[in-house]
Computed example of a mutant assay.
Amino acid sequence: MLSFVVTALIIALIAAVLGFTGIAKGLAAIAKLVFYLFLILFLISLVIGLINGF
């Protein structure tokens, strides 16, 4: 999941440099959404792991 975020950010940066601002904004928004989703899932799994004692 994080590899998708990194790939989307790299493509967004390249698109921004080349002047495709609409594509860059869209990819950056998608990457941000997936990153926050990953972060939430990570925190949930961390809390569950602490409750269960790993």
Rank of each mutant, 00 (worst) to 15 (best):
V47Y: 08
L2S: 14
A16Y: 01
L27M: 06
I30C: 04
V6T: 15
N52T: 13
G53D: 08
L13M: 13
Y36N: 14
L9A: 04
M1I: 04
A16T: 05
S3V: 14
N52E: 15
G26L: 04
L33I: 07
I44E: 06
A24S: 05
I14D: 10
L37E: 13
F4W: 12
V34F: 11
L37D: 14
V47E: 15
A31C: 03
V34D: 09
G53L: 05
L33W: 13
V17W: 05
F4L: 15
A31N: 05
I10K: 11
F35L: 06
A29N: 05
F38M: 09
I14H: 09
G53R: 00
I44M: 02
F42R: 09
L18P: 04
L43S: 12
F4R: 11
V5R: 00
L2Y: 14
I23V: 13
V34C: 02
L50M: 11
L9K: 02
G19L: 05
T21W: 12
F4K: 03
A29W: 14
A31I: 02
F38C: 03
L46P: 03
G22Y: 04
I40T: 15
L46Y: 07
I23C: 03
L27N: 00
I40G: 03
I48W: 01
I14M: 10
I51Y: 05
I40F: 10
S3E: 15
I44S: 08
G26K: 04
V6I: 15
G22I: 06
L27V: 01
T7K: 09
L43A: 09
Y36S: 12
Y36D: 15
A12L: 02
L2W: 14
G26E: 02
I30P: 00
L46T: 10
I44N: 05
A31M: 03
A16H: 12
L33Q: 12
G22E: 05
L41P: 01
Y36C: 01
A29C: 06
S3D: 15
V34M: 09
T21A: 12
V34H: 01
V5S: 10
N52F: 02
A24G: 00
L13S: 13
T7L: 05
A15K: 05
L37S: 12
F38W: 07
L41E: 08
I11P: 00
V34P: 00
F35M: 05
V6S: 13
A31Q: 09
V6K: 08
G19S: 09
L50Y: 04
A15M: 06
G22D: 08
L9G: 02
V47F: 00
A12W: 00
I14R: 12
Y36Q: 06
G53Q: 10
L9I: 01
S3F: 11
F20Y: 08
K25Y: 14
A24C: 10
L9M: 13
K32L: 04
L43H: 07
K32S: 07
L41N: 13
A29E: 08
S3W: 08
G49K: 01
L27D: 00
